[in-house]
Amino acid sequence: MERKTLFRGWLLPAALVAPQLLITFVFFFWPAGQALVESTQATDAFGLSTMFVGASNFLALLTDPDYHAAILRTAFFCVAVTILAMAAGLLFASFANRAIKGRFLYRTALIWPYAIAPALSSVIFVFLFQPQIGMITNLLARFGVNFNYTANGSQALALVILIAAWKQVSYNFIFYLAALQSVPRSMLEAATLDGARGLHRFRTMIWPMLMPTTLFLSVTNIVYAAFDTFDVIFALTGGGPGTSTDMLVVKVYRDGVINLDLGGSAAQSVLLMAGIIALTALQMRLTRGRAT
């Protein structure tokens, strides 16, 4: 859609978009272009000379079992986080949408966690799960469970999934609640009769109406889990122990910034770029469906 009533001139609008475009060029397009160039180059061990190596960085990456493992790990992580966070968001939203006393308080209590910094979510969970001081760690120890995410890889992975999902629940809650609020009241009441019948009605009547939101959130949550969980993971485990929480976004940081493998890191950047372009395109298609 476009406007019919307009102002004239081109100098003023050009000046108005200039600041945004300038920032976009300097900090987005220029570095992204550099990533493309660097991904085809290799630097010698002393950083003295750089040469063109074609697709060999990509070939090295795509034939590297470590990278395969990181892809699989990330895929598992994304699916787990998405399912947990969306299920919790939908569960709380459908109850918070009922006409019960205090529902506005409940809503606020489920919305504010949106404001928690991802990195600080991990810090908060350290207070609960740190091997020495963690409150829940000590509780588990009484039942004979030895919980130590700094040494046990699968426990670390489980904890990172839990925190990343925890952080995302309020976002999903907000969207599901908004979607539920547009479902006709009478329909909702029919479906909220408790027990098996209510559940059945929820599945056959409400769930289909929530489909556009569910699809939209699925993509948003996968993008979140794949690209925005660096903070959660890096603050808690740094990718360890070993490589057990080394997701793609953590690996690109470790290889590029810490281990200074520029070519390899740039090639990873380019592959991640391809991934996010595909996901954004998918999201755009779904959003168009949702808007109508």
Partner: peptide
């Protein structure tokens, strides 16, 4: 183009 995909450059 989130920061993670262009981090080193």
């Amino acid at each position: 183009l989130p920061i993670v995909v262009r981090i080193v450059p």
